[in-house]
Lab assay of single mutants.
Amino acid sequence: DVEPGKFYKGVVTRIEKYGAFINLNEQVRGLLRPRDMISLRLENLNVGDEIIVQAIDVRPEKREIDFKYIP
């Protein structure tokens, strides 16, 4: 289970104008929005990159997770 405030290693699987989709595993995916990136820009991410993200909002009923990147 993903818990708000905890850090997780994930893989960038898709990049859109509104953010990057990060997979923690095959069943768990969330969104990293540009506003939640500190010292990292969306255009510097590539599909396949491994990054450490912090879960900031977890909505299991909608199967949605918002992430934050903190270097």
Rank of each mutant, 00 (worst) to 15 (best):
K6R: 13
P71G: 11
K68D: 02
I15H: 01
G10Q: 02
R63A: 12
I22T: 00
Y18S: 05
E16K: 10
N23E: 12
D57V: 13
T13E: 07
G30R: 02
F7P: 05
V12H: 00
E50K: 14
P71Y: 06
R14M: 08
L24G: 01
L42F: 09
N25M: 05
T13Q: 07
I51W: 01
S39T: 12
R29A: 11
D1S: 14
L24C: 04
E64C: 07
E43M: 09
I22V: 12
G19W: 05
P4Q: 12
I51S: 00
Q27N: 15
N46G: 12
D1W: 15
N46R: 15
T13Y: 08
L31Y: 04
R41D: 10
T13R: 06
I22N: 00
K17D: 11
G19S: 02
K68R: 15
K9A: 10
I38V: 13
L32H: 01
V53T: 01
R41K: 14
I65Y: 08
V12P: 00
P34C: 08
I65N: 02
F21P: 00
R63S: 12
K17A: 13
E43V: 10
S39R: 11
G5N: 09
E43Y: 10
F21W: 15
E26V: 13
A20S: 03
K62P: 06
V53Y: 01
Y8L: 03
V2S: 02
K9G: 05
G19Y: 06
E61M: 10
V53G: 00
A20D: 00
R63H: 14
Y69R: 02
E61Q: 12
I70T: 12
I70E: 11
Y8Q: 01
I51H: 01
G30P: 01
I70K: 08
A20P: 00
Q54K: 10
V12T: 01
S39P: 15
Q54V: 13
P34N: 08
N23W: 10
E61V: 09
R33F: 03
V2D: 03
R41W: 09
L24A: 01
L45W: 02
L45D: 00
V28T: 13
N46F: 15
K17S: 14
R35Y: 08
V2Q: 03
P34Q: 13
E3K: 15
I65C: 04
E43N: 11
D49W: 05
I52L: 11
D66F: 13
K6S: 09
K62R: 14
L45Y: 02
I51E: 00
E64V: 10
E3I: 15
Q27D: 13
R63T: 08
I70S: 11
E64T: 11
G10L: 04
I52P: 02
R35L: 07
K9F: 10
I52D: 05
E43P: 06
I38M: 12
I65S: 02
K17F: 13
I56A: 09
P4D: 06
R59E: 04
N44W: 14
A55N: 01
E61C: 07
G10W: 15
V58M: 06
R33W: 02
I52N: 05
L40H: 05
D57I: 11
Y69L: 05
A20V: 10
A55R: 04
E16L: 12
I15K: 07
G30T: 02
I70L: 12
I15E: 00
G10D: 00
Y8E: 00
V28F: 08
R41G: 11
Y18D: 06
L31C: 04
I15L: 11
R29S: 13
T13A: 10
Y18I: 09
M37H: 03
K6G: 09
V12W: 02
I22D: 00
D66H: 09
T13W: 07
G10E: 00
I51A: 00
V2C: 04
R33H: 05
V53R: 00
N25E: 06
G19K: 03
R29H: 10
L40R: 06
D49C: 07
R59P: 03
G19E: 01
V47Q: 05
E16N: 09
N23C: 09
N44T: 11
R41I: 09
F21S: 03
D57A: 15
E64Q: 14
I52H: 07
V47M: 07
I70H: 10
V53H: 00
I70M: 12
E16G: 09
D1A: 15
V28P: 02
L32Q: 01
L31I: 10
K6M: 11
I22E: 00
E3W: 11
P71M: 08
V58K: 05
I56M: 14
G48L: 05
E16H: 10
D1C: 12
R33M: 04
P71R: 08
I51N: 00
R59D: 08
V2G: 02
G19T: 02
G48H: 05
L31P: 01
V58S: 08
Y8C: 02
G19N: 01
I15V: 11
R14Y: 07
V58L: 06
R41F: 10
D49Y: 07
D49F: 06
D49M: 13
Y69A: 05
E16S: 11
G30K: 02
P71S: 10
L42V: 07
K68S: 12
G10P: 00
D66K: 09
I15A: 00
I22A: 00
D1F: 15
F7Y: 13
A55I: 15
D36R: 04
K6L: 11
A55G: 02
G5C: 09
K62F: 10
I15Q: 01
Y69P: 02
L31A: 02
Y8W: 02
R14A: 12
R63N: 14
M37I: 06
E50F: 15
P71K: 08
R33L: 04
G19V: 05
I38H: 14
P60D: 08
K9W: 14
G5I: 03
R63F: 12
R35W: 09
S39W: 11
F21Q: 04
I15Y: 01
R29I: 13
D57L: 11
V12G: 00
D57M: 13
E26K: 15
G48W: 08
K6C: 10
E3Q: 15
A20L: 04
Y18H: 07
L32N: 01
